[in-house]
Simulated assay, not measured.
Amino acid sequence: MGIRDELSGKWHFVCSHHGSEQSHLIDTAKAIVERNRQRGGFKIETIKTSMGVIKLIVLRKRELFSADELGIIERGVKILTNTLERVFYFEILYRQSRMDALTGLANRRVFEEKIEELMTSSSRYGFPISLAILDLDNFKEINDSLGHDEGDRILKKVAVVFQDMIRASDLVARLGGDEFAILLPNTGLEEAKILVERIINAVNKLDIETPFGKKLGVSVGVSQWDGKLGKEAWIKLTDDLLYAAKRAGRNCYFTL
């Protein structure tokens, strides 16, 4: 089933299969919707709702659908319309509850869940995890002098930089205000430091100036989990390193 979010214009797909079969079917469904291909091996039924459009895509691997089968699908969709609408609403609300509304990044809730999962997995399988907590330098001057609209525009621009820098397995989240966190599974401290340096340079290259002639930068605290600290203690340790970077002159990172 494909669900189009009217706010972002993006399609999201769900499928009842699992594993590689699920990936294959979702990729096929995406291609059908994006290219609007016409062949007999699939059937699309469109349901319009107040929040967007649902496309139910029925796929068949080999044989074409008969006229009777197509009729059954159409009648079935009419019966299931209300149920599918509820699924659509649930998907949108679920995504919204886990996403920062301004930047589109993961929110604090997702960060808290993910860090616990990674710590559990790291304890079991022995892979390293690193954490970076980032705070924008001189952002308050922009917000106070130019207004929240300009501040929001800059936050979105910086969020794109952060997202572009990480791997698919990493997580970047907005914790609130101009503070962000990046979780790095299978990453030791030295690798994390290389990434953090690249992020600091990328923010500098945005060349954003405050009304008082200062440049927007980013200060970062970065640490590798030692396998012993609890979640809150590890986050606090990394946050303390962030403020050490602030005290060291800003636009830099600090680690143990």
Rank of each mutant, 00 (worst) to 15 (best):
R62G: 11
Y94S: 15
G76P: 04
I54G: 05
G19R: 02
F13R: 01
I73P: 04
V33G: 00
L102G: 07
I92R: 13
K55M: 14
F111R: 11
L7Q: 12
I154D: 08
I166Q: 07
D68C: 06
E63G: 10
L242M: 08
I199W: 01
I166E: 11
A244P: 02
G41P: 01
I133K: 04
L25T: 03
I44P: 09
T28N: 03
C15M: 02
F13H: 04
F162I: 06
V58H: 11
S121G: 08
N204D: 05
S169T: 12
L80Y: 13
F180T: 01
V220G: 00
D170K: 04
E209D: 03
I166P: 10
V14I: 10
F180I: 02
K48E: 14
S122H: 04
A168Q: 12
G217S: 02
E74K: 15
I3F: 14
K48R: 15
D152H: 11
E85A: 12
E21C: 00
V218T: 02
F65T: 08
D137K: 13
D100V: 08
P128R: 11
V220S: 00
R124H: 06
G126Q: 14
D137M: 14
L70R: 14
K48M: 13
R109W: 12
F139Q: 13
L241W: 04
L105K: 06
K78V: 10
G104S: 12
A29Q: 01
K78W: 09
L256G: 01
A101C: 00
S97I: 03
E85R: 13
I194E: 08
H24W: 03
L102M: 11
S121C: 06
W234F: 15
S169P: 03
K246A: 02
E141Q: 15
G40S: 08
V220W: 02
L80M: 15
R174Q: 09
